[in-house]
Structures are given as C-alpha cells and as structure tokens.
C-alpha cells in the first residue's frame, strides 16, 4: 500500500515536471496535420458560403493545397532528406510515394481548375453574371 502510494506520487511528480516536454512533443507530433485540417476547412467554408463562382474555385484550390500539405506531412521522415539517391551510406530518405501522387495531383488540379474557370466564363456569357443566386433567379425567371 505504502509502496504503491510512493510510486503513484513519484509518477505524478514526474508527470508534473515533464508536462511541458510532453505537451511540446504532443504538439509537434500533430501540428502539421491539424494546421492542414484548419486550412482545409477554411477552403471548405469559402466553397460553401460564397456565391461568386471564381471565389468558389479559389476555395476549392485552398482545400486541395491543404490536402497536399497533409499528404506530404504524412510522408515526411524526421531527419530524412530529399528522396534523391546519394552515395552517402545510411542516408535516410523521406517517403517518395506521396511526392509522386501529389506531383501528378497538382498538375491535374490546374487542368481541372482551368476547366472550372472556362465553365465560369461560359456561364458569364450566357447569364451575364457569375453570382450563384442571380443565376438561380435567372433560371427561375426563364421557366
């Protein structure tokens, strides 16, 4: 009984003294992921609430870039280097697989963004506006 109390107390003291270090470790272990999620949600919010189509596309782009950051964060290895083979023995490389996936995703992203912007331009030519609610009003007026 006495011993257990001692151990418990010792643990608590250790916990108190090491809490700052623990907290920092904890923050560092997930900081990148959380910040990427925050950015992602800002992009999501822009896409949901803005009625301007160009702004919506920019919001989608934010979302996409945040996703890239999250993906590359997952592939990062502490003390690793750029995944280009060197002669140095025992070099630790970051995971090249997310890099490949994101590299192609970026270029596909710009292609689809261009398509979206082209659609916005055509909508502007047809309706004279790129505000979503005004387009809906025009649609309702037609029918």
């Amino acid at each position: 009984m006495n011993v257990t109390e001692l151990v418990m107390g010792g643990d608590a003291a250790l916990f108190m003294s090491g809490m700052n270090a623990h907290l920092l470790d904890f923050l560092a272990s997930g900081y990148n992921y959380w910040m990427a999620v925050v950015l992602m949600m800002i992009g999501f919010y822009i896409t949901l609430t803005r009625s301007n189509l160009v702004k919506k596309i920019i919001g989608l782009n934010l979302f996409q870039t945040a996703m890239f950051l999250l993906y590359i964060s997952i592939g990062n290895v502490a003390n690793g280097t750029v995944p280009i083979l060197t002669d140095k023995p025992g070099a630790l490389y970051s995971n090249p697989l997310p890099h490949v996936l994101i590299l192609t995703a970026i270029v596909v992203g710009i292609a689809t963004t261009a398509l979206g912007l082209a659609l916005a331009v055509r909508i502007h030519e047809a309706y004279g506006t790129i505000e979503e609610d005004e387009i809906l009003d025009a649609e309702a007026g037609d029918s």
Binding site: N32, I72, I84, S94, H99, L103, I106, I110
Partner: peptide, 14 residues
C-alpha cells in the same frame, strides 16, 4: 518537408 519535386511543381503551377 523534403518534397523538392512537389515544391517545384507547386511554385510553377500556383
């Protein structure tokens, strides 16, 4: 984060 290729592409695209 060691992603030189991706950073290169992102800078050129974005």
């Amino acid at each position: 984060m060691d992603a030189a290729d991706v950073a290169f592409t992102e800078a050129a695209v974005g």
